[in-house]
Design a protein around this nucleic acid. Structure first.
Lengths: 250, 250
DNA sequence: CGGTATATTGAGAAGAGTCAATGCCTGTGG
DNA sequence: CCACAGGCATTGACTCTTCTCAATATACCG
């Protein structure tokens, strides 16, 4: 692997500049602990579409997503695929104490990861409770997310599934940063139709049809293939099947 | 709450006699740590069908399932329900650091739980790494299980879903204890058809039809409503859609 | 022995899948 | 700078699985 690109260089300096410093597995670390982590960390970048590891392959590192989006998916013998996780910046990849990956890990967009060599990381976990504590917290959050996704996969209609996915991505983009003006939200879909279908347990065609149907009804506006605007977020929310008032609004 | 029943008494003595001693959240505890846990633990029993907590209710305890089976499920406004977890003996209920339950917790069979008052348990977690470590391990296992279930919910056919559920229950019963004679397995289904349908993301009628179909083809034999015999486990395994050789056989 | 829960079965409707054709961006090379 | 290729997305027609609604049947409880 060649020298880090300039994008990478930006991060390769110092944990204190890191955009995910306070949300990742290192969130609770003190500065001396961060120094130790810096000894065993290195950055890797992946292009959109590139596979990070295949299910069953040995993984000699664990990692945090710094920028970009990665996906976890499972494949059946006959090729049916189901995405089982969507990894956003600060999310953790790999399982301490296990040497192989249980899932295919793929970069959905261009992605930068902060990797730790597995053995040193595991050793450090033993003497640094802050890491294990934070990892427990993050794992519990992921478990909640997985369970919410189970409800979507098991019980929601195609239209509800699409609406749910769009609101989730919109919410995330809105909270993490950008783009709300008059009350409308607008963002770039980081997933292809195929990736969406793998996430939602649908076929690509059904995804496409439902997107068209939402577009025809004015619930979303599309621009090019991937840019989405949601003129009225609450109206889209009503299509998700979720408790409209219950959950927190962004 | 009245005095413990005779069944409860059996457990109420001593962690060292506990049937889940080496698998539950306390698995790694030393004897002095167990003594501390004994100070804050108490047993509760639930009858089949009884609700342990409703989603949204405050939960002032966390618990381990000692005997029996409990379920976690989510409900949509219009009544659609999806089970998101099946809790077997040694599984953990509740989330440290959260005061309300995210799910309905229901006893599927008569169940005994070893409960810990939440606040003392959380305090103890802070000074007892063994507990947090074990909980992390268990949570990662649950996350894996949830992700496997996502594949089932998103991609498997009704027949594959039923076969998968039956093999999972059969495997568990076989490993935990009993009943294999000539190569056939036999066990009591701990779930009603309705509970099965909630778990599998199907309707009750579809569950029933698929059970009948498996019965007609001789893949299972039923006796009464709930007792199942699997004459040829491998043959049933082929119906699950899973990698036949890959995974460990019981 | 009857009553109530639970489970089975049937017929028809509906949602999503399949197969196939067409359309639309993006980026590359002439 | 334009044209065209290749990947991605859309749309259509038809099929098939699963759901829905409704009627029985069967097991389990007192």
């Amino acid at each position: 692997m060649t020298r880090a690109t300039s994008t990478l260089k930006t991060y390769n300096q110092d944990c204190s500049d890191c955009p995910i410093r306070h949300r990742a597995v290192c969130a609770r670390c003190e500065s001396d602990e961060l120094e130790q982590l810096e000894q065993i960390k290195y950055y890797r970048s992946f292009e959109a579409g590139q596979t990070v590891v295949w299910a069953g392959d040995t993984m000699d590192f664990v990692a945090s997503v710094v920028t970009g989006i990665a996906t976890l998916s499972q494949t059946m013998e006959d090729g049916r695929r189901q995405m089982v996780g969507l990894l956003l910046p600060s999310d953790f990849i790999g399982r301490p104490g296990r040497s192989t990956s249980a899932y295919d890990v793929t970069a959905a967009t261009d992605t930068v990861m902060c990797c730790f060599r597995k053995k040193p990381f595991e050793d450090m976990m033993l003497r640094t409770p802050h890491i294990g504590q934070r990892l427990l917290e993050m794992t519990l959050d992921e478990l909640d997310a997985a369970r919410e996704w189970m409800l979507l996969l098991g019980r929601k209609t195609a239209r509800e599934k699409i609406s749910s996915l769009l609101t989730i991505i919109a919410r995330r983009d809105a909270s993490l940063q950008l783009t709300m003006t008059d009350g409308s939200l607008s963002f770039d879909l980081p997933l292809t139709r195929e990736a969406m279908s793998e996430y939602l347990g649908l076929t690509l065609e059904t995804v496409s049809r439902q997107m068209s149907s939402l577009r025809k009804e004015g619930l979303i506006v599309t621009e090019g293939k991937r840019h989405i605007t949601i003129p009225d977020f609450d109206r889209l929310l009503e299509e998700t099947g979720d408790d409209s008032d219950g959950g927190f609004l962004m």
